[in-house]
Design a protein around this nucleic acid. Structure first.
Lengths: 122, 122
DNA sequence: CGGACGGTCAAGCGATCGCTTAAGTATCGG
DNA sequence: CCGATACTTAAGCGATCGCTTGACCGTCCG
């Protein structure tokens, strides 16, 4: 069972490769076999399988072999984990008060007006 | 300046390293100088700067040198781009098919008949 | 049965990654 | 002006990455 507590290292590393991202995009449109998944790419089949293993180890994809065909499908939990981490960082920065801190740190000289119309309260 | 249309490759690659993610987390709590940013880590200063360059090239961090101090701050746009891509894939998977597609593919053996019970969508 | 199909295993190779040390360059403090 | 501070640059080294080729195994079809 592809561990659910996979490290972010593996998730982001998996997503860092364009081939692997293209595979994920392909899999959002439905499950696919290995060779089916390999067709768009100009590389050998073992290379594709290696990418697939990276995705699987990261918990982004699950695959099951029936007969001689391995069928791969997306595992949205991995994606959700990555999205959650990013959102946490982004909101930690945008949330409390820090945009102002940035402004102050940049130019503490002419603080005549401190009300920029930024921040559409997302 | 680091282009805003930076490739996802660089963004996810930058996020794939635990040291770099820790730096991002640190920067959500406010701007920091290079050596300040380096303090929590058991590595040499040049190593930290190299990580910083990766983050900056990915458009996740911006830095400005004043006097002999380089001050780094978070660039939320990069984070938002990454989050957007992930969300797009996740919703592309979860949206149109619901979970039914996944369920059918897992339990059913072929596409000839699709008359299993339907509507377990939560 | 025999061959094609779908995938797997193993070795290896060049490129990149993360990190190091050593030796700079600029600024600031006294 | 001199030393300390805050990086910066460059070279190098072992480990990992992405990909290849070649051999192999199990499954389906005629």
């Amino acid at each position: 069972m592809p561990n659910q507590g996979v490290a972010f290292d593996q998730i982001f590393q998996a997503l860092a490769d364009p081939t692997r991202r293209a595979m994920v995009e392909r899999l959002t449109r439905g499950p696919a076999s290995v060779s089916d998944l390999a067709k768009p790419f100009p590389m050998s089949l073992p290379a594709v399988v290696q990418h697939l293993q990276v995705l699987e180890l990261a918990g982004l994809v699950r695959s099951e072999k029936i007969g001689r065909v391995r069928t791969c499908r997306l595992e949205p939990d991995g994606l959700r984990r990555a999205e959650g981490w990013i959102a946490a960082q982004r909101t930690a920065w945008e949330g409390p008060l820090d945009r102002l801190g940035e402004f102050l740190a940049a130019g503490a000289d002419d603080s005549a007006h401190a009300d920029q119309q930024k921040g559409p309260a997302s």
